[in-house]
Amino acid sequence: MRILPFVLPALLAAAPALATPAFLPTRDVAITYELDAPGRAAQNYQLNYDAAQELARVENPAQGVYILANLPSGQAQVVVPALHAIVQAPDFSALTQEISTAGGAQFTPLGSGHYAGMACQKYLVLNAQGSGTACITPDGVVLHFAGHDAHGSAEVTALSVAYAPQPAQEFALPDGFSDVTLPPGALQALLQPQ
């Protein structure tokens, strides 16, 4: 499943015209998530989100890389500190657009939920590519997502949520790093959980 672990656009289907909930945070937040996928060890990710600029930083400490995404511009870069490199990720432009629009999703309410000490609204989310459920706070923080598509299935659960202004340097590209362009498929291999 294509997952940008701060959580991921929910998937859509044909549902009556329901109001779409906020599915991106409406205020600055730092969230620790656990990603579970069949056949892989659970991985923890840190998402830092600047709500005003719609900037995200997703980091998996075990991988030693992080992703910087600018949702309005549809751009993302993978920063690889061990190589002193910034990998341009044009393939992510479609994914950032999908995140910004939730893939055109409509959400069907399922009731209330509770994760990471916070209340959320559960939704059924479907589209032509797959299906899932999401539990989202009123201010757009996805606390839980479980779904599947043609690429597989995954579950993402918030372990902690901290609302606080996010420092601008968290979203800045590091100075002195080289730009790298990888051949097709190499970026996906770089980002695969170990």
Rank of each mutant, 00 (worst) to 15 (best):
A158D: 02
A158N: 00
A56V: 04
D139P: 07
L190I: 07
G176S: 05
L95I: 15
I3N: 04
A146S: 12
T181M: 10
L126Y: 02
G39Q: 09
A82W: 00
L11G: 03
A37N: 04
D175M: 00
A37G: 04
A13H: 11
P72C: 06
M118N: 09
R2Y: 12
Q77F: 11
P183S: 11
A17K: 15
R57E: 01
S93K: 13
Y115N: 05
A134Y: 03
L95A: 15
P5V: 13
G140N: 06
T20D: 11
Q121E: 11
P81Q: 03
L190N: 08
I31V: 15
V65C: 05
L18H: 14
A13I: 07
Q129S: 11
V180P: 00
I136Y: 02
L182S: 06
T133S: 01
N127Y: 00
G132R: 02
D149R: 07
V78W: 02
S178H: 12
S93H: 09
I3R: 02
L173Q: 12
T181R: 12
A158G: 03
G185V: 09
V141P: 01
Q194N: 13
P167D: 09
Q46S: 11
Q88Y: 06
T137V: 05
G152I: 04
K122L: 10
A62Q: 15
L126D: 11
A146G: 06
P21H: 08
F145C: 04
L126Q: 14
C120M: 06
Y66T: 03
P90G: 11
G39M: 08
L124E: 12
L12S: 12
Y115E: 13
G130A: 07
A76M: 15
Q129F: 07
G74L: 10
Y115T: 09
S100Y: 08
L68H: 05
F107Y: 15
Q169I: 00
G117I: 06
P38S: 09
L143G: 01
G104R: 05
G117V: 07
L187W: 10
L4F: 14
L126E: 13
G111R: 08
L143Y: 05
I31M: 09
P165C: 02
D36F: 02
A15I: 07
A119L: 06
A41K: 14
P109T: 08
P21Y: 08
P167N: 03
P61H: 08
N70H: 14
G64V: 04
P174G: 08
S112E: 12
L126V: 10
A41L: 14
Y163K: 04
R27P: 06
A105F: 00
L173W: 10
G176E: 05
A150E: 12
T96D: 11
Y33V: 02
Q106G: 13
N127Q: 12
Q188P: 00
D139V: 09
D28Q: 08
Q63F: 03
P9A: 14
Y123Q: 04
E54N: 11
G104V: 07
A42Q: 07
K122F: 01
A164Y: 00
A30V: 14
A10H: 08
L8T: 11
T157C: 01
R40W: 09
F23W: 10
E34A: 02
A76Q: 10
L143Q: 06
V29Y: 07
Q43A: 14
L124C: 00
E98Y: 15
P9S: 12
S178E: 12
G64Q: 06
L191T: 13
Y66G: 06
Q166R: 01
F92A: 15
P184K: 13
V180L: 14
L95G: 09
V80M: 00
S73L: 13
A85Y: 07
P90L: 11
Q129P: 01
